[in-house]
Amino acid sequence: MKSKKSIIESATSTLKLESDAILNLIQHINDDFVKVVQAILDSKGRVIVTGIGKSAIIAQKIVATFNSTGTPAIFMHAADAVHGDLGMIQKDDIVLCLSKSGNTPEIKLLAPLLKQSNNLLIGMLGQVDSDLAKQADLVLNTIVDKEACPHNLAPTTSTTAQLAMGDALAICLLEAREFNTADFARYHPGGSLGKRLYLKAGDLALKNERPSIKPDASVKDVIIEISKNRLGAVIVIADEKILGIITDGDIRRMLERYTEIENIKASDLMNINPKRIDKDELALYALEIIKANNITQLLVTSGDTYYGLIHMHDLLQEGII
């Protein structure tokens, strides 16, 4: 069994090799890379990304990243391409083919078939003198010195380089399209990521009651209202005007200071400068306010009108935290 030291050394060596390989790609961001970005931007079609083996897996990830950042893309397995899947390629599509060697049998068979259709063929490869490199119109060079595998066999460093080059390409396209957070939210409506980008403070507040009380209300009435709505706070209102907020923490601090509470009113307890957020602001911003001020509840308004309350648990429940 390997020792703790040897395990750490092995992992460190792997990460060093792969990080060096990524940094080495910088020298290969050249005119062909620029032409690839421009060709995809100008294209009326999609990017068909293909590969074999581990490169096929990286190709699928690149497709997912392209689609989520505004570049329409489809994955085509190189082995399936010659058995009918070539039919998915339309005349305006661009083909991006991933291969470390550029000389695998499937790629050598596929490349000339792709050229027959007159689609732009981009090779992402590690050998610039390979068969694929000769067939490709443009080349993205992802050459690596060696794999992290001690036998220099298992695709590790090479697939990391492909992945990084794909990300570089996707981000260049994203920025060129001026793809913003609103676009991102439209493509990612599900899960916590989508909620962070589109869920509004008002959406959360609408799920809760709107606890309120008059400024002359007794301590007992304040406690009942806070307990009834399970938000840990109540808003003090007079003539539809927000006067302040009382939290369960304010109640506890009041009980520590006073023994006689019969004459204490809501107006005596309230914080007259409650932290607030407009209903149309993102819930993510509500989280920032709550964290910055070390509070649990946040007042939600519509202009100067009381709209509702958000509790930190609402953000937790929605996966915003």
Rank of each mutant, 00 (worst) to 15 (best):
L138Y: 13
L140I: 09
I143M: 04
I143Y: 09
V144M: 07
K146I: 01
K146L: 00
K146M: 01
H151W: 03
N152Q: 05
N152W: 10
A154P: 00
P155V: 11
P155G: 11
T156G: 04
T156H: 05
T157R: 01
T157M: 01
S158F: 09
T160V: 12
L163R: 03
L163D: 05
A164Y: 10
M165L: 11
D167A: 03
D167C: 06
C172Q: 15
L173N: 05
L174I: 07
L174A: 05
R177S: 02
F179Q: 03
T181P: 13
T181M: 07
A185R: 13
A185W: 08
A185P: 09
R186Q: 14
P189N: 07
P189Y: 10
G191Y: 13
K195C: 10
A201D: 08
D203C: 00
L204D: 11
K207N: 11
N208W: 11
R210D: 01
R210P: 02
S212M: 11
I213C: 09
P215E: 08
D216A: 05
K220G: 06
K220H: 06
I224G: 00
I224K: 04
I226G: 01
S227D: 04
K228P: 00
N229P: 02
R230F: 13
A238H: 14
A238N: 10
A238S: 15
D239I: 02
I242F: 03
L243D: 06
I245D: 02
